[in-house]
Design a protein around this nucleic acid. Structure first.
Lengths: 338, 338
DNA sequence: CATACGACCGTAATCGTTTTCGGAAATAGT
DNA sequence: ACTATTTCCGAAAACGATTACGGTCGTATG
């Protein structure tokens, strides 16, 4: 390993000058700087992360916290990978790196986050899969760690967040179905305590009421956010009488299983029952193609990163403004399912 | 932030003793150790990552390298999340943490890895999406970083690897189809330079030859590893004459698009054309259910971690043996597609 | 009683980097 | 010619942890 000391010895100058040269500080001769840069390139010098961050008190790393395990809590892999890509295009301009902080399924997320921030692993955190009440916000706020969340929560410590417009989606979807003549609309509410479920269900109920329709408890279906969950809930739907003539769902992963389950019960999606959901890469390749709501995940990632930077003291000069709270719009793709 | 110094002041002892107590070293009174542990718990002390790893020369972090971006290179959905979960169950027993090192789609993976290891970010690396020739192996070998790869490569620096048994899959699939009477079998080879494509295609060709059958170049279809890629390749398949009566594919993501594309071309999967592929959470919810090869991703992760530990000097006492090279078996799930 | 030894703890060096401070040399100003 | 100012660089102090080393007790052994 070639450190700054080897580099300094090689050039026969002091480590202080080398450091200043590499970091673009003043007080170093142009010619000297050139020599240092050249030698660093030649010897393949890269500053040691631990030494640097110990001294600077910051790591240059932004962490995106997510939970591992077979049951994805809210989104699929492709979802995050696209968001990550957007986040990185912004962060890389500031020489920040993004890593995914992986919380094991058998560790408490709160404890994991506590351990991780106390270690000083990352300068800033991006949270996802926000719950109805989410103590992680208070933790990060208490430790004064810059963070942003992809998702809202009832817990409010003045944190910035960006969230998909589940309420707008509910509104457009319900109105579309009502206009098409549906009077008996059901919704699928993914299991668990994710906040988005509440937002979505509440707004659905509200919009239905505006049209003089009620959302009977009998037509609020709970399902695990997985293909198998979709399959299972299809049989519940099939067994209801009266059976809803349309279904709106907020989770993207459920839909393949849902289609299959309905078909197995002799109910043809798009014909016997209307379905409106969320876009996923498969959505347009189902039969019938899913009518769904989509968004640019990359742009979402970009926005996430920019707003995160705005709450990081060392970078906020670039992005000023009040606490960012963005409800990200989604657009409807007309399929053949509803 | 409460550091070791605050802890020592609080207990009115020296930082040396505190450190020894926390790390289970000798030379510390049982009663003192108890008090230290108690105070650490109470004050929420967690050793600073930078300070510790600077001194120790190791970080306690294992990195899993993967590339971000909308086009997943080889696997989809819950694949990685399940593998991660297995990896972590092993690593956590040794107080090691797993993070995903995210290489942006517009950064060269080799350069990214170089930067990351030179910084001393992780003690060990897990590679995935291995290419036919993969310079990353040489890089890690040169820097003497312990690593393992999920996937083989022609590049050989004596590294350990675990890979799915794509050759076994090819063999079982081809034999099954031949036995069912198929004489004109095509394969889908995902675009790119991933090594698994070569392994799979070569073995298919070989097994066909053993049965006196040839794999015409006309029936080797290249496709982007995505739903859209599956849809596109379906039209190519449909346009061939003679058209293959069966298709074997090694990528799990393609299949939804493939089904749809074939149907749009008036070809019914499982009826007009047999299809055998890889398991994914959707596979059993397609119509007809996909005949596919599956494995326990969690167990794969566990094995990956154990073999990684065996090449990490600080841990290898627990797992001895020669360089591990595991061809991971897959089992057939009989669906209705082929 | 003197010596040896073990148990326990504090001191200080160390890891690799950044950054402050002061000094030397060169240049400019009078 | 003397002072003031600028330019450049080296010395050294941090950052927070681990750990080698030595010192102070108390107890056991001869």
């Amino acid at each position: 390993m070639t450190g700054i000391r080897q580099l300094a010895d090689y050039l026969d100058i002091s480590i202080g000058t080398v450091s200043r040269a590499l970091n673009g500080k003043a007080d170093v001769n142009a010619e000297t700087r050139r020599r240092v840069l050249e030698a660093a390139e030649k010897l393949g010098y890269v500053p040691n992360q631990s030494g640097r961050s110990l001294r600077k008190g910051s790591t240059g790393v932004v962490g995106f916290m997510m939970q591992t395990g077979p049951e994805i809590t809210s989104q699929g892999d492709a979802f995050f990978m696209s968001v990550f890509d957007g986040v990185q295009t912004v962060l890389s301009r500031h020489k920040l790196d993004l890593v995914a902080l992986l919380c094991s399924s058998n560790e408490d997320p709160y404890a994991y986050l506590q351990r991780t921030v106390a270690r000083g692993f990352a300068d800033a955190i991006i949270l996802s899969a926000t719950r109805r009440n989410d103590a992680r916000f208070e933790l990060l706020h208490r430790h004064d760690i810059p963070f942003i969340s992809l998702g809202r929560s009832l817990t409010d410590v003045g944190q910035p967040w960006i969230d998909l417009d589940f309420e707008g989606m509910a509104e457009v979807a319900i109105k579309r179905l009502v206009k098409a003549g549906h009077r008996d609309i059901g919704i699928i509410w993914p299991h668990g305590d994710l906040n988005l479920g509440y937002l979505f269900a509440d707004r659905c109920r509200q919009v239905l009421a505006e049209h003089g329709l009620a959302l009977s408890d009998d037509h609020v279906f709970r399902a695990k956010p997985s293909e198998a969950g979709g399959y299972a809930v299809a049989h519940e739907i099939a067994s209801r009488s009266p059976r809803p003539s349309a279904i709106v769902l907020v989770n993207e992963i459920l839909v393949t299983g849902l289609y299959k389950g309905l078909e197995d019960a002799g109910i043809k999606p798009g014909k016997d029952i209307a379905i409106i959901g969320r876009y996923s890469p498969q959505a347009q390749f189902l039969s019938p193609a899913l009518t769904c709501f989509t968004l640019s995940l990359r742009d979402l990632g970009i926005s996430l990163a920019e707003h995160l930077l705005s709450v990081m003291p060392a970078y906020q000069s670039h992005y000023v403004g009040q606490t960012p709270r963005v409800v990200w719009p989604m657009t409807l793709i007309e399929g053949a399912s509803g």
